[in-house]
Amino acid sequence: MDLTLKVWRQKNREEKGRLETYKVTGISEHASFLEMLDIMNEQLIKEGTEPVAFDHDCREGICGTCSLYINGEAHGPDRKVTTCQLHMRMFKDGETIYIEPWRSAAMPVIKDLIVDRSSFDRIQQSGGFVSVNTSGNTQDANALPIPKMNADKAFDAAACIGCGACVATCKNSSAMLFVAAKVSQFAYLPQGKVEAKQRVLNMVEQMDIEGFGNCTNTGACEVECPKSISIEYIAKMNREFLSASCSSES
């Protein structure tokens, strides 16, 4: 496959950035999108041009590191995949492909296609955990009876890999799907219930501080989520937040 790539180049946080056009040739349709970028970078190095910086790590769809807004969609035109799982057979020979970083005030571009997703870390640190005494007397989690449905819902929410596709695709740059998954993951389990009220209040507050937009229920996030997290978790978070707002003592 021969392709024309329009790639976002930006030296650092402060620089304005622009789209550069690169041609790549002889790409196999079986190559992954990241492999295609590797080939492009090798070509750029040979030409004496600085290679394009992009995030990647596990390359098997579980770490959430690879991002990229490809041809107008988070993680490209395929569904339920991360960019490392996207293959070139989804594109046509001769096609022009736009490759841009996630766009959000809360996730600024650091370099080229890499964005700073530490806003997600700070949201997690504000409450996305269960406090346990690790002195050696920790109760076996399996000793607590948990209804199957709750365990399943918690597990589905826990599938969130924090990639940020929800933010990138939302027209408002809202992080509600991410925060909802993290809030729900614990709210469905007895271990998480103890701190549930403070957790949802703190995580929503941190989300707002970071400058993410408001959810308008377009549902775009659940379509683009590589782990198919449903917006029913956003409703769950809304319920948790309402209940905590009305009854929390702090």
Partner: peptide
């Protein structure tokens, strides 16, 4: 620069 919101909403 390129956005296709109609693909998901």
């Amino acid at each position: 620069a390129m956005d296709k919101p109609s693909e998901n909403s």
